[in-house]
Design a protein around this nucleic acid. Sequence first.
DNA 1: GATGAATGAGACTTCATTCAT
DNA 2: CATGAATGAAGTCTCATTCAT
Lengths: 213, 213, 213, 213
Amino acid sequence: MTSPSAVPGSERSLRSDALRNRIRILVAAESVFAAKGLDASTDEVARLAGVGIGTLYRHFATKDALLDAVFAGRMQRLVDRADDLARESDAGRAFFDFFAGLLGESPRDRVFTDALARAGLDAEAAATRPDNPLHIAMAQLLERAQRSGQVRPDVSVPDLVSSMFGLVHAMRHAGTATRVRLRTLTIVVDGLRPPAGTQRRVKASVPVGRRRR
Amino acid sequence: MTSPSAVPGSERSLRSDALRNRIRILVAAESVFAAKGLDASTDEVARLAGVGIGTLYRHFATKDALLDAVFAGRMQRLVDRADDLARESDAGRAFFDFFAGLLGESPRDRVFTDALARAGLDAEAAATRPDNPLHIAMAQLLERAQRSGQVRPDVSVPDLVSSMFGLVHAMRHAGTATRVRLRTLTIVVDGLRPPAGTQRRVKASVPVGRRRR
Amino acid sequence: MTSPSAVPGSERSLRSDALRNRIRILVAAESVFAAKGLDASTDEVARLAGVGIGTLYRHFATKDALLDAVFAGRMQRLVDRADDLARESDAGRAFFDFFAGLLGESPRDRVFTDALARAGLDAEAAATRPDNPLHIAMAQLLERAQRSGQVRPDVSVPDLVSSMFGLVHAMRHAGTATRVRLRTLTIVVDGLRPPAGTQRRVKASVPVGRRRR
Amino acid sequence: MTSPSAVPGSERSLRSDALRNRIRILVAAESVFAAKGLDASTDEVARLAGVGIGTLYRHFATKDALLDAVFAGRMQRLVDRADDLARESDAGRAFFDFFAGLLGESPRDRVFTDALARAGLDAEAAATRPDNPLHIAMAQLLERAQRSGQVRPDVSVPDLVSSMFGLVHAMRHAGTATRVRLRTLTIVVDGLRPPAGTQRRVKASVPVGRRRR
DNA sequence: GATGAATGAGACTTCATTCAT
DNA sequence: CATGAATGAAGTCTCATTCAT
């Protein structure tokens, strides 16, 4: 999780101070964009990062490139969590925990939602590019949960992503009203469960347990 | 529904040409903002409407005022539909039709979602200002559907609004993938149904008792 | 003073309603420009006058033309007062009363000062166009006062106009500080008196010879 | 007088090129606003300064801030002159030289007059904020001149400022007519002298010649 | 590599003036 | 003649991006 590859774009070895600057910029950017929206100025990001604007543009050719990097970082955290949960023994629990985790994300920021909106996650792109890391991670969670009979069998990964996308926005709308947040989550979670009467069928099939990768 | 008051701001009688321009501007604005986001320029709206920029600003003192008007129009359509459905005899069908209707709205635009995001609909504001027309309309739909036992009794109007908000965003994410759109809707709709085993309780309150589908 | 010619531009006979509108516009313009400066909009003038903007432009082809008319009206009042005073028997008193009258004018408005600044009253234009009504009126006041020995003989009408112009601005600067207003006036007035020792010379030319106060 | 602090805003050390631009902008602004009035566009200032409009706004956040800086520069020159004169041995000469110096200022520009009009110099503000540099400098000139009996004892600093304000406007009105300028100055100057008969009184009180402070 | 000053396109908005009703 | 809706030039200001130091 903390290996260098966790910082996107850092593969080409950078002088340590340059790397430090890059990270400071990313951290500042996430904070600024989360607080003030994506229209916040690059100047403000640079200021918070404690670097000159020129330095920011040396690391990220474009504001858009910076946003992409921020989004990628955010997505990575989500993928990491999905991967961690995929190792859980209880497939259903893992699956629903993933959704429940969204409760904690993004009290009010637009970074996460926009991160999901970009990055080729929309349903159309998903068909042509099924190699998206988040897709892969979610596919594992979903498959196991479905096989264990705890998730309705008729949902696919794109459905899941759309639902998750909607849920995150709903959380943003619900704001700090805990009750509302909770019940909105419940609605989606219950909607993902198998309809009454179908529920029991496959339950015993997970004894072996499978590993990713 | 088609009375003049359906066009926001038309209450003060305007010369016919002025009214026509006002409408053209609103239509253009909805289209432009839907296509390019709320950052699209007022110039572009004026150009598409075929009026000078001065005319736009004569009708709407501020870009924000224009956005408000666009949002209000969009909300009004939603409220109108909710009101229409409130007159349906089958409470459950009316309720779920309302949600199903969101399938048709907003294939990809940000106007509708942002319209919902503004206008004091967020959960916190809802507590203090329960007089919102959409709230009232949805409250009617919800109450009746709950009394008929077709919607789980533990959801409140704010939960519903958050869910709807999320669903609309999910629709935007799903894009034109009809299957995904449909299944995402299904998840939310099923999540709104009473959990298995609770279902029967209130049944008798709907005289004849009607089955969905 | 109240003859039709007092309203500049009304010479061509206008229908009575048109004339009334013209006057209402002028009155409104003076009030608006005095309160908000010459940058106030023509729209605001029209609104206060209770006429449409089109009507304003029918009467005054240009904002500048309107300003000229307002200025002319203000100047006329000044000229009228000078003419009235010219009929006073005490030449010195008449002269100084004219200056003292400026105390009352323009507590804070820019119309009067700008009226003076325009209308060919600057010293250079005065040389080529000595037919300015205000010049003529002030010339009479000055000449008589000088002949009576109560005003220093070395000042000319342009000097007087410049002094008056400055005094009016000084009044604007002094604001509502009565003491300051009064003393500033005193300085100019005393500066216009004949220097000590020169005073008596021309005395005999005023038959009776009168003392101030 | 020529220390760096004479350039307003240069206190924070700027890169030499930035400082040069700042000065070019200020010089251009003074010239443009003097020639065309305060309504002249910032674009024109930038053009004359040979910088982009963005550079102008980097140095001065607002047109108003630019005007303030221009005004402050102009005021500083006036204060500097007053301070210089305050060191003259002949108090009366110093005092009247100060006024005579206004002859040279501002043949036709509005910058100086508006600089005086702003900056809390109006008579009302003066009462509450007597710490204005110009006030202090003029107070010194005035006090000494009054003590030496060469200026009437009943004028205060606000009176003086109002008079000066008026005089500067009068100069603007007089334009290039040297005679008029000179005589208008004479009127004010003579008005500031002690009235005949009072003149001698305090004279002997200055025998040794005293230094301020 | 880092810095931050400079740039200028482009956004929003105002207002004098015109013209169809 | 009166009206006020329409027009668009022009103004202030922002901000992504470039470039000299």
